[in-house]
């Protein structure tokens, strides 16, 4: 395994992005970032700016108004970048499916690498999702 790939796996920096969810999954993502689950042992750090991030953690369905902004934020993240969809709404639009203002799941606007279903998913499940992504990266 080369050095760059190793470094990428060891240091995924996270951007926390709500695309129109109900705030339930946000709280669970923040809980996953708290000292109790200690994601810093995997090198995960929360970043404020999309320019510093490697991994966009999206919650909520994409509303029609949010679509352009999500695409723009996705384009602001430097390559290589990954996207996680957290929660049922982010995976499939969930209970908001077919609403007049909802476009659908995150993958309607930007490519998604990992889906973590649940309403809301457990913080441990979110950390497990990140680990699955890193394993996938390691094997690629």
């Amino acid at each position: 395994m080369d050095l760059v790939k190793w470094a990428r796996i060891k240091s995924p920096w996270v951007l926390h992005l709500n695309t129109g969810g109900c705030n339930g999954c946000d709280i669970e993502v923040l809980a996953a970032l708290m000292p109790r689950s200690d994601v810093e042992r995997f090198g995960i750090l929360l970043q404020g700016s999309p320019r510093h991030a490697d991994l966009i953690v999206c919650q909520g369905p994409i509303t029609k108004q949010m679509r352009d902004r999500v695409v723009r934020i996705y384009e602001q993240v430097p390559e290589p970048k990954f996207v996680m969809a957290i929660g049922s709404c982010a995976c499939t639009a969930g209970v908001f499916q077919g609403c007049y203002n909802v476009l659908g799941g995150i993958d309607k606007a930007i490519p998604v690498d990992v889906y973590v279903p649940g309403c809301p998913p457990n913080p441990a499940a979110i950390v497990d999702g990140v680990m699955k992504l890193l394993t996938k990266l390691k094997e690629s």
Binding site: W6, K10, D38, R41
Partner: peptide, 19 residues
């Protein structure tokens, strides 16, 4: 909590160089 491993800052540095 446990905290980052010893090589963590180096991994961050190399990753940023390659971005």
């Amino acid at each position: 909590r446990v905290g980052p491993p010893l090589f963590q800052p180096f991994a961050d540095f190399v990753k940023l160089l390659a971005k």
